[in-house]
Every structure is written in C-alpha cells, then in structure tokens.
C-alpha cells in the first residue's frame, strides 16, 4: 500500500472506515468514516464520534483503501447466479408440509 489513503501526508490525516458492534451477539456494522493519523487515534476518534450515545460495545477501524470492493458493473455475473437455485431454500420442499418438527 504505497499510496494508502490512511497514511497521513503533510498535515492531512488519512481516511478510515468505522465498524461498530452495537451489542454483544451482533455483527460489526459499518457506521461511517473519519480521519486520523494512525490506527490508535482512529479507534479513539471513532469512539468519540460514533459511540457518544452508547451505540457500541466494540469498534473496528480499517484504512479505507484496505477494503476490496466488488465491482458494481459486474453485478449480474457476480450476484445473480444464486437466483433460480430454489433448492437451497427450505421453502422449495413442499411435500413435507404439515410434518411436525421438520
């Protein structure tokens, strides 16, 4: 990552994405982003910015450009293949309807 957006340059701090777990048992959810000079400060800034109202019990911060994202233009080939594969879902199996505990 030679040109990481999270790496500070001059007096500009890098961009970090923030994920917050709102309570135990739930996943971390993307909350937004912020600027910080390094990971330690990014965590602290995230705590102050995204959990002022008890919104979280755990925080992840990730350099924004460390996230690899799928290409929105290849939506069809990437995400439409599962369509039509009804047999992956319990609702596909209708003959057993009415049988208890199945």
């Amino acid at each position: 990552m030679s040109e990481s957006t999270a790496e500070p340059t001059g007096n500009t701090w890098g961009l970090w994405e923030v994920f917050v777990r709102s309570s135990r048992g739930l996943s971390h959810v993307h909350a937004g982003s912020l600027h910080a000079p390094d990971a330690a400060m990014a965590l602290r800034n995230a705590r102050d910015l995204y959990t002022r109202r008890n919104e979280g019990v755990s925080i992840w911060v990730v350099p924004a450009d460390a996230i690899a994202a799928s290409d929105p233009d290849s939506k069809g080939s990437f995400f439409e293949s599962p369509q039509g594969k009804d047999y992956r879902h319990a609702t596909y199996y209708t003959k057993s309807e009415g049988v208890k505990h199945l």
């Binding site: 790496e7 500070p8 007096n11 701090w13 000079p37 390094d38 400060m41």
Partner: peptide, 16 residues
C-alpha cells in the same frame, strides 16, 4: 492546528 496535524502525521510515519 496545522502543526498538530503535521506532528501526528510525522509520528505515524516514524512509527510505521
């Protein structure tokens, strides 16, 4: 605040 932001950036660069 420029000198503060610069200091934190310089520190981060040194640490990394």
């Amino acid at each position: 605040g420029a000198w503060v932001r610069e200091a934190a950036a310089a520190y981060a660069a040194k640490q990394s």
